[in-house]
């Protein structure tokens, strides 16, 4: 009689599984659970890091949700930024992956588009400031030479948001392109051959074969891009500082300022927690919606 291998059971295997898991558990406890727990605790306090926290119950949440109009404005900005990033960034990354999957020297092209990911985000922000500066920027100078008045890329509230979304899309396109490229490469050539035999054209093959086959990658990229967009602020901090007049001030940047410039750690933690819940709920809904469509 053949002996079946024993299945792994961390609860019933004695101390050995826990021993091997312990580095990971300790790491998670120290760097995820503890900070998150501390942040949740802080959100119920009033604390500037120079003193000791005072318990204030739900007052920080009450202030942010009922009295702080700037907080709501930053939530709106966050959604605009995140949706703009997903709506413009995901199709672009997919398009690039699709084009380069059939291009000569695709490894070189992919490397070129991935380069921004290897560059410091602050350097990217400064570079784009030079390009988009209203008076001295490269873009407006070139438009000026053609007799055109360029937009106020960084001083007009609407254009400033468009500018930061555009730069974020540029910065992140290479990363998502690689995910889509890997997914495209994984599609079996025989499926394309079968589609061709059935008389499907290029467009029909794209819609009926390629996109359904790479749907897991599409779900992954959409959700991770959305989460990135909702919580990202380093680029905005360096590029516009949240301006002009708060037009690009997203919630993550607002809470960062609250914590480290205004020294309101309790309120900042409450703001971050609200953002965390919003991201969590929307990501869950998004995941379910996209998964339902896939099945």
């Amino acid at each position: 009689m053949e002996r079946r291998p024993k299945e792994f059971d961390p609860a019933g295997g004695g101390w050995a599984p826990w021993l091997f898991l312990s580095p990971l558990l300790v790491f998670a406890a120290l760097f995820f659970v503890l900070p998150l727990g501390f942040s949740v605790y802080l959100s119920f306090t009033r604390w500037n890091p120079l003193g000791t926290p005072d318990w204030v119950g739900l007052r920080q949440f009450e202030y942010l949700l009922t009295r702080d109009t700037t907080f709501w404005a930053t939530i709106l900005n966050t959604f605009v930024f995140a949706f703009g990033f997903v709506v413009a960034g995901v199709p672009l990354a997919l398009g690039l992956a699709f084009v380069f999957s059939r291009a000569r020297g695709k490894a070189v092209w992919r490397s070129v588009y991935y380069l921004p990911q290897l560059t410091n985000i602050v350097a990217i922000a400064y570079l784009w400031q030079f390009v988009l500066d209203d008076r001295y920027g490269l873009v407006n100078r070139l438009l000026g030479m053609a007799g055109l008045r360029g937009p106020d890329w960084l001083t007009d509230p609407v254009m400033a948001m468009i500018s930061v979304v555009m730069v974020m899309v540029w910065y992140d396109a290479g990363k998502n392109m690689l995910v889509f490229s890997a997914a495209l490469e994984a599609v079996d050539q025989e499926i394309y051959d079968a589609a061709t035999l059935d008389g499907a054209g290029a467009t029909r093959t794209l819609w009926s074969v390629t996109l359904p086959m790479i749907r897991p990658a599409f779900i992954f990229v959409t959700i991770t891009s959305f989460i990135t967009g909702m919580g990202f602020f380093a680029l905005i901090l360096a590029m516009t500082g949240g301006g002009p007049r708060g037009a690009t001030e997203v919630t993550a940047l607002y809470t960062y300022r609250m914590a480290f410039e205004d020294l309101r750690m309790g309120r900042a933690s409450a703001g971050a927690l609200i953002l965390f819940v919003i991201i969590g709920v929307i990501s869950l809904l998004q995941f379910r919606a996209l998964k339902e469509r896939a099945t």
Binding site: G243, P244, R245, G246, R257, E261, D262, L263, R264
Partner: peptide, 21 residues
């Protein structure tokens, strides 16, 4: 107290008025 926070608010108000908003 909270000078930096207050001056941030002042700056936004002044800028909004100067921008004609």
């Amino acid at each position: 107290m909270q000078s930096a926070e207050i001056e941030g608010m002042m700056a936004q108000t002044i800028e909004r008025v100067m921008a004609g908003e």
